[in-house]
Each structure stands twice: as C-alpha cells, then as structure tokens.
C-alpha cells in the first residue's frame, strides 16, 4: 500500500475546490477514462491575468485527487505567468511528497494547467519534437528520456 503523507490524505478526503466553476474562462483537460486517470481544471482569470478562482474534477487515485486539489490551492492568486512555472514537483512538494510510483499522478496537474493557460490565451500547444507516446498526458519519448536523466 502507498505511504501517503497526512497532507495527501487530507486533500484526498477533503478535496478543496471540487466541481465545475461557474464563469470559468479557461479549461484544461487531460487523461481519459481508458487510462484510469483524468483531470479537468477550471480557471477564472481576471483582466490582469490573475487566477481569481480555480476548481477541478478528477477521476483517479488518491494521489490524483490530492494533486488536483493541491494544484488549485497553489495557483489561486497567481498570475498566469507565475502559474505556468508550476511543475509536478511543486505539487508533490506542497503535499509533502508522493510515493515514487505515484509521481505521474501529479504530472496530470501540470499538464492540465498548461492546457488551461493555453486555452485562455487562445493558443495551440505547439507540436513538440519527438514521438507522442502518451496522448492523455501529452508526453513524448524525448520528454521521457529527459525525465529519466533528470531523475537519475
């Protein structure tokens, strides 16, 4: 069984900011039913590109739920530029760490956030170099190689 920190458990059992957000002007979606994990992120962004509210809906394990909940807490009050620098490590750190097998659950948060920001700014996410290996999380083989290098 996973060794979840108290913070992870708390965010899983009492997730913050659940549900669709009325008046959201940016939405990011990642994952799918077939993968067993999916996250939909709703943002309300003001004219200064400040995130005034954020909510989520998640289908996934406890880490996925907790990561989504944590993400909304982290980014509320940030500008889009600040938020765009958030990585899955920030989410994991906020939660006091995730089991290594569960790090990918926090990647979903990072990915949904990127898509939401792109959605707000009305830009297509650029084609990335490399071969797409994971549609849901928008991951290429080159990124995996980079990640393995960075983690070792």
């Amino acid at each position: 069984m996973w060794d979840y920190t108290d913070k992870v458990k708390d965010h899983f059992l009492k997730p913050r900011n659940v549900g669709e957000l009325e008046g959201a002007n940016a939405v990011g979606e990642t994952g799918s039913l077939s993968c067993g994990d999916a996250l939909k992120l709703f943002l309300k962004v003001d004219e200064n590109e400040k995130i005034v509210d954020a909510t989520f809906m998640t289908f996934g394990c406890a880490s996925a739920v907790a990561s989504s909940s944590a993400l909304t807490e982290i980014i509320k009050g940030m500008t889009l530029d600040e938020a765009s620098k958030i990585t899955n490590d920030d989410i994991s750190d906020y939660l006091g760490g995730l089991p290594k097998e569960k790090m990918h659950c926090s990647v979903m948060g990072q990915s949904a956030l990127k898509k939401a920001i792109a959605d707000y700014r009305g830009i297509q996410i650029l084609e990335k170099p490399g071969e797409m290996v994971c549609e849901c999380f928008d991951v290429t083989d080159l990124e995996i190689i980079e990640a393995v290098k960075a983690n070792s």
């Binding site: 059992l13 039913l33 067993g36 994990d37 289908f59 996934g60 394990c61 406890a62 739920v65």
Partner: peptide, 14 residues
Amino acid sequence: DAVEGESILLLLDR
C-alpha cells in the same frame, strides 16, 4: 462507473 478503484478502497479502508 466513472470512479476509480484505489480511491474507493481508501474510503472503505477508513
């Protein structure tokens, strides 16, 4: 439908 097993188990575990 539409929910994930581990989450269910953890809620049951509580």
